[in-house]
């Protein structure tokens, strides 16, 4: 599937912001299943400095600072990608979860060494509650890892209520686990914490969903905004993405932006502002398929603004 993605973030401040610094994970990364044809960021103000370099996880990442007093800032990201369907993966063919653990104890290849870091708690998935007991329900001895992880995803989907009113971007995973409710980000964090509670690697994926469903299909939750899910390491298939919000193995309808240990590593736009007093953020996301129904590629705004 070919997509056009537009992600517009608008900040409005009550008073002048004299200086601001931002870190944006808004451009899309290449993956084995995703080809990025174009991905760019346009700012409504000329930044005083700007650096564009991949982060530790090889996600495209943009650092910029604004020195002029302002009450309004718009960050526009526009991308054009093609997502391929994942290969068939029979969950029974993956290694058992104990074998995965043992393999990571003495990691041999680059991929295994990379996977190790995703076994550990990260700032937003650190937990005190007994998430391990919850996770163990899906991982009896000898179970193939992918089978266990898929069941875990089903259970999170079943046990946790999708609710946009009970959490915010800083809600700790323990709280989500306690109230059994949250948004896609929270459910992804629960999945990650559960896997890690058994010493299994899991990472956080930030991305998008198709905004308008194909005719006759239901609209998926999490469209119209950034979406998030988690990914498990299931050799021999490598990383497999699971979306607990929609209870499905991620396929062609998901566009990947970035991945990291948790939301904190890949927040779409993080910022520190001086002044401003109070602020509101508006986020608008469009994901439009480029297919028979839309033969024309939507017009990408010419780069009038500074880059």
């Amino acid at each position: 599937m070919e997509y056009f993605v537009r992600h517009r973030t608008t900040y409005r401040y009550l008073q002048d912001v004299s200086h601001s610094w931002h870190l944006a994970h808004l451009r899309l990364r290449e993956t084995p299943l995703q080809a990025v044809h174009d991905s760019r960021i346009t700012l409504s103000l000329e930044p005083a400095s700007r650096a564009d370099r991949p982060d530790y996880f090889a996600n495209p990442c943009e650092w910029f600072a604004i020195d002029q007093p302002h009450t309004h800032l718009e960050v526009l990201a526009e991308s054009h990608v093609t997502v391929s369907p994942p290969p068939e993966r029979a969950s029974r063919d993956s290694l058992t979860w104990e074998e995965v653990r043992a393999a990571l104890e003495n990691p041999q290849g680059e991929e295994e060494r990379e996977a190790v870091q995703f076994q550990f708690d990260s700032p937003m998935t650190r937990f005190e509650s007994d998430i391990a007991a919850y996770a163990e329900g899906s991982f009896p001895p000898g179970r193939p890892l992918l089978g266990g992880a898929m069941e875990l995803m089903h259970r999170i989907h079943r046990d946790f209520r999708y609710d946009t009113t009970v959490t915010d971007v800083t809600t700790p995973v323990d709280r989500v686990f306690e109230i059994r409710a949250g948004v896609c980000q929270d459910l992804a964090h629960v999945g990650i914490a559960a896997m890690r509670s058994l010493g299994l690697p899991a990472r956080y994926i930030s991305g998008y969903l198709l905004t308008q469903p194909p005719p006759g299909k239901a609209r998926l939750l999490g469209a119209d905004a950034s979406h998030a899910w988690f990914s498990v390491w299931a050799p021999p298939f490598g990383w497999v993405d699971l979306d607990p919000t929609n209870d499905l193995v991620v396929g062609e309808s998901h566009v990947t932006s970035s991945w990291g240990r948790d939301y904190g590593d890949v927040a779409p736009v993080a910022g520190i502002i001086l002044g401003g007093h109070d602020h509101v953020v508006d986020v608008g996301v469009d994901v439009i398929p480029v297919d028979d129904a839309h033969p024309e590629l939507p017009h990408i705004a010419p780069q009038t603004g500074p880059r």
């Binding site: 200086h19 601001s20 946009t164 119209d224 905004a225 910022g271 001086l274």
Partner: peptide, 16 residues
């Protein structure tokens, strides 16, 4: 006396 604060990029959520 400019106070410093953090801005996020808004919650991940659906408008439904």
């Amino acid at each position: 006396h400019a106070s410093r604060s953090r801005t996020g990029s808004g919650q991940y959520l659906d408008g439904v």
